[in-house]
Design a protein around this nucleic acid. Structure first.
Lengths: 349, 349
DNA sequence: CTCCTAAATGTAAACGTTTAGATTTTCTTA
DNA sequence: TAAGAAAATCTAAACGTTTACATTTAGGAG
């Protein structure tokens, strides 16, 4: 009983034509109950499993979507993926997941492969927002939705987190606590999240009449190491900041590590706010205040948009969703008494 | 210029037959340079991309492997996945990833779908080691390798971590520090890791003539919550343990959280060793000692074994690898002075 | 210039489905 | 019970490749 049975074998055994078998496999109805049972029995006995490749050849669709993430080790993406997968499974879709390690070249290859395989749609967090490597996909009429990073030159549905709002609120929170020397550890400025979180930071300072101080701006790369370096550099400043805003989870980890190593008193000498919740946030003392992103929801929404595109091929205009992040206030930001020593004696007002 | 070009179109445009085109697509040689260039040009101009489904119909293989994990949110699996993916890409394979949420039913469905798609192989961490749902895959002659959890009734290549050794060493370490009342937070006993880590624990106690105390054995389920509950229960004991060994990462997190909430002095009143390294390990004070698994290597090896099976279909006997975990000694285990108050005054020899 | 051989290219038959459209069977109704 | 309609079933043609085998072409040797 090799795994060889095909629809022919089933048809023969059930004494019907392959068309009828096909009908019951896809429950299209119009088959007498008695016949159906006979066919089902034959399928059972032969251990028949339909061949997806052959099916795809005729019907075009694969019930497969391709998912591209830049870094599978960043816990943000598995979470998003979980959301995607859940919704996908509900609708009978499967997901091919590939990680680019932030390499546009790899991304290009993966996309080509996705097209070869005839994926019904693509969900992507691109490694290169300005690239034209996405063109090929769109040209094939394959729907695409961008997650977390938007795409420059093409109109694709996009699901973002409101980064500006998130970082604005975080920085605002620190300002309202009396901080004036607030540093930021930035992400790469050629990525949407990196850029936007910086914008929120600037906007908050502006709205509260604090001037931007170059010394307090550290350019990181979203990697743990750069967070570590950032904190070190800020610490080495003559005039240290009293608060730090870190632009993503990994840098937060690096940053907090450095703060610990430097014996910089978190929540006292230095307040802290991070973008993205992290496991460690509630383990260190004081607990970290963070901006939390609705990752699962992001994934669910992304699939939902994609699915709509897959089903109704009509050209609906591009849609863009911005999900609001949530401020989780814990303990790493303490009231600050401006212009005075940090002992809290001379409370202003 | 719809994304419709097929091999026929290319052939026509290059003024050759489809056979020749096929030959250059698969670089099989035997095509005059001049002709090849003409074909390449046509491909370029038409934006032709070969149809994987049609290809698969003839040549049988899909260059796709299916990967099944029980919980995509457990950081262990993305790490393994990264290893798999890296090796796979090197060999021109792609991976379909699906998460079962520990549900054997879902797992069964996914496997069926994998067969439909004609994956060339399967890498799986099964949700049900005793299930016969794996039979269908093997029957189709699809190679399979098990990762982290072995499979009962079938002979498949297996890549494991030496759980017994890991937990043995961890417990041994605590014993040698003088601990006698060592508790364990177990994983489910119907999974290999859960079982084996418990065995290592028992063995260590036995070897050092410590008797197993039922009160110090807490049955968890590898989830964070159960770790939390475990620590609570142990704390509520009249005669508290002086050390805890936690069987996995998530339970470690729960456990450490509880210890914090209970104000149980980590590293002083209670020593701790966890299986699996976690982000938080180096953030809390004292830093956590853990057993660390070579996750990336696990994934790489798994793919390698699978690839061998795919290439050489000959029935090689089942192979089983056990990778050694590594003990990372940090600070959460302190010397214990047995039989005396924990103030360390009465050091026994 | 022929002939022969080897290299290059072409022809046509699968692969396993789905699905119009044709045909047969069953059921209803007069 | 026959006719007609409706339901069930069948036939055959795709889908886009790969590949064994057949055919043509090129290039030397005589």
């Amino acid at each position: 009983m090799e795994g060889k049975a095909n629809i022919q074998d089933v048809a023969k055994r059930a004494n019907v034509s392959i068309a009828t078998v096909s009908r019951v496999i896809n429950n299209q109805g119009g088959v007498r109950k008695q016949t159906e049972e006979r066919i089902l029995k034959a399928i059972q006995e032969l251990g028949y499993i339909r061949n997806a490749a052959a099916r795809t050849m005729k019907s075009k669709d694969t019930k497969t979507i391709g998912v591209i993430v830049p870094d599978i080790n960043n816990p943000f993406f598995p979470s998003v993926m979980a959301g995607i997968e859940q919704k996908a499974r509900e609708k009978g879709y499967f997901a091919i997941l590939s990680s680019t390690n932030e390499s546009p070249v790899v991304e290009q290859e993966i996309l080509k492969n996705f097209i070869e395989r005839g994926v019904d749609g693509v969900i992507i967090t691109t490694a290169n927002e300005n690239g034209d490597h996405l063109k090929q996909v769109l040209e094939q009429g394959i729907p695409m939705v961008a997650v977390d990073r938007s795409i420059q030159y093409y109109d694709v549905d996009t699901v973002l987190v409101d980064n500006v709002k998130g970082s604005y609120q975080a920085v605002q929170h620190m300002i309202l606590q009396g901080h004036e020397k607030i540093a930021i550890i930035c992400g790469p400025q050629n990525t949407t999240p990196g850029r936007e979180r910086f914008i929120g930071y600037k906007k908050a300072l502006e709205d509260y009449n604090l001037k931007l101080d170059e010394r307090y701006i550290f350019q990181g790369d979203f990697g743990e190491r750069s967070g570590y370096q950032g904190a070190h550099q800020l610490y080495s400043l003559e005039d240290r900041p009293t608060a730090i805003f870190s632009s993503n989870n990994l840098m937060t980890i690096g940053c907090v590590k450095a703060i610990g190593d430097l014996d910089w008193k978190l929540g006292e000498e230095i307040s802290f706010f991070g973008f993205d919740d992290v496991d460690i946030a509630t383990f260190i003392n004081p607990k970290l205040s963070v901006v939390s992103r609705p990752m699962h929801a992001l994934g669910e929404l992304a699939f939902q948009l994609l699915h709509e595109r897959i089903q109704f091929k009509d050209p609906v205009p591009k849609r863009e969703y911005k999900l609001s992040p949530e401020l989780i206030i814990r303990e790493s930001c303490r009231l600050r008494y401006p212009k005075s020593s940090p002992d809290g004696q001379s409370l202003k007002k």
